[in-house]
């Protein structure tokens, strides 16, 4: 059995106090709880502070391009269905430059877990407005306050009937680990949006801010996470400030269960050879 130590790599380079430490810790805890071996986990990250996750998590890693963790991660999973595949990025990476892929990953429903470290700011480029910055946020690129409305990731995912929608907070890694564990167990695409405070460039959306405001849906026995419309209403009423599993639909088939001809055995383990008989059969179609 693997332990936390097995999922540790180099010492992270994030700022002290960065919310991403909590995300890393929760992912490691979830991996241990799921009984995974480090070599069976691939973390595909985008670019930004969040993008360092592939180097800091002790599995295989693919540090891809800005905004492109999702297409890359989906193909890794299709190439080897035995792997547990995480896509990891930030709000700029996932909801800005990479937004198109997000919607399509939801509809494609390949069995990966997408973790977004949402800090409402561009951190690695030292503090510009992001797609989730609240209206009025003063940043280096919005010195007089942003005027664009923020993306609402949970509502977006819910409206696209994403099969697993959850939110977590870096200030409660134990709970986040439970959420991630459930996300990985879900067959199909899962979203975990994480409020992961940037202690250097965002003084508004701080640990204290979230601690005061967040409501834990997992702790609410009356909340039914299988009712999509109720989920949308609840998230709207709470102004997105919820944590826990917001919605799960276990009925949707994952892509690899539905697509024609996809083999049981991992593609990566098959010898990619065309038999002479099959070659001749195809050749005959050109005569």
């Amino acid at each position: 059995m693997s332990t936390m130590k097995d999922f540790k790599a180099e010492k992270p380079t994030w700022c002290p106090g960065c919310g991403d430490f909590g995300v890393l810790n929760a992912m490691q805890r979830a991996a241990v709880a799921l009984g995974l071996e480090p070599e069976d986990v691939v973390v595909v990250s985008g670019i930004g502070c969040s993008g360092k996750m592939s180097q800091h998590f002790g599995g295989y890693g693919l540090h891809s391009l800005h905004g492109r963790s999702l297409p890359t991660a989906q193909a890794v999973k299709l190439a080897n269905r035995n792997l547990t595949v995480f896509a990891a990025g930030g709000d700029g990476d996932g909801y800005g430059i990479g937004m198109g892929h997000f919607i399509h990953a939801i509809r494609r429903n390949i069995d990966i877990t997408y973790i977004v470290m949402d800090n409402h700011i561009y951190g690695l480029t030292t503090g510009q407005a992001s797609p989730t910055s609240d209206v009025g946020s003063q940043t280096k690129t919005s010195p007089r306050g942003t005027v664009e409305r923020p993306i609402e990731p949970l509502q977006l995912a819910l409206s696209e009937r994403c099969g697993f929608v959850a939110q977590a907070f870096s200030g409660d890694t134990k709970h986040m680990a439970q959420v991630i564990e459930r996300a990985v167990r879900h067959r199909g695409f899962s979203l975990v949006n994480v409020f992961s405070p940037c202690v250097t460039f965002n003084k508004v959306n701080s640990y204290e801010f979230y601690k005061e405001k967040l409501v834990n849906l997992d702790a609410d026995p009356a909340y039914d996470c299988h009712d999509r419309l109720a989920a949308m209403r609840r998230v709207a009423e709470a102004d997105n400030l919820v944590v826990g599993v917001v919605y799960e639909d276990t009925e949707q088939p994952a892509y690899d269960d539905a697509v024609y001809g996809y083999p049981e055995e991992p593609l990566a383990h098959l010898e990619p050879r065309l038999s002479d008989a099959m070659y001749e059969e195809i050749l005959a179609t050109f005569r």
């Binding site: 693919l62 890359t72 193909a75 299709l78 080897n80 990619p272």
Partner: peptide, 11 residues
């Protein structure tokens, strides 16, 4: 990027 991901994973 999908093609890169698959090649990375051995396909």
């Amino acid at each position: 990027n999908m093609a890169i991901g698959a090649n990375y994973a051995g396909v």
